[in-house]
Amino acid sequence: MGDEVTVSTVAEAMYEMVKQYHGKKNLKAMDLTKAMIEKFGGDNCDKQLCKQAIRELIDSGRCTYSYVGGSYIVLPPT
């Protein structure tokens, strides 16, 4: 059996993705969710887990929401 995918694992992977796309493409919550389900597989990662991971990213201040004609998850301004 593979390692369990935790909220923190998904949050970390989401954070890396937001960093990678920073300044190139704005990502919505659903973009991150779809990418994580694809990365970890539907059996290990679902929408609920992704929701919790986004909550962790936002509440820790590592990411923030922005509004540019839609709501996106971005890095906080430096």
């Binding site: 936002i58 201040g61 923030t64 929401y65 922005s66 509004y67 540019v68 004609g69 709501s71 301004p77």
Partner: peptide, 17 residues
């Protein structure tokens, strides 16, 4: 101009920049 990164901690809405 409206939008941008502005709000209160933990919230993605409620403030329109």
């Amino acid at each position: 101009k409206h939008g941008g990164i502005v709000g209160v901690m933990g919230y993605g809405g409620g403030v329109i920049g």
